[in-house]
Amino acid sequence: MQVTFRILRFNPEVDKEPHFEEYRFEGHENMTVLDCLHKIKWEHDGSLAFRRSCAHGVCGSDGMRINGRNHLACSTLLKDINTKKPVVIEPLPALPIIKDLILDMTDFYEKYKAVKPYLINNSPVTEDSERLQSNEDAEKLFESAKCILCACCTTSCPSTWSNNNYIGPAALLKAYRFVFDTRDEAADERLDIIDTPDGIWRCHTIFNCIESCPKEINITWHISQLKKELSTREL
């Protein structure tokens, strides 16, 4: 089957603004979008730049906008998208473009670091030298721990598009991961960090993050748990 890809290209040494370029090639419905990008890069235009590492939806490097919605290129099969019209490939919205589909992710990681994404526990370990947790308590964290930091959710959020300071769903999800961890002792500290107008309260439950998440995490549900926690701790 013949497939056409329309890719947003930007070369910082030549271009003032990004522009679309079209590539036509022989594809197969079981090819992923990443396979197609490889085909283009290896057989048509070697100057095409994009990030990828594992190519199996684990590293989260190849988040991009495919036919108008953020997703991982390696987790999107051609048969699951509309290939009758040209497939439109753009970089994730909101973050600055370095080249073609490669973005400057500094801002995304800064916000991620802001919620202290690591276990904080200053009390000495017990005699069996382990910090134990019940299965039920661990299960509360499983879904949020699946996040691979691909930035698909944060850059799909209309609050991110219009507000540079919005912390974003990925960082809030990570906050949930540690706030509801029974082994962690800094829940209040983290809740104070996200309890600002540009923190959790900029989430307007638009659900774009859920639609784009390649790991199918219900991010808005996790954020709503944090909102409940924040509202009830004042009582």
Binding site: P12, P93, A94, L95, P96, I97, P158, I206, I210, E211
Partner: peptide, 19 residues
Amino acid sequence: KFDQKNWVKTNLNYKKDSG
């Protein structure tokens, strides 16, 4: 780098669902 911040344009052409 190219700054993509254009929330009106992104709001108009991003694929929308019920939310």
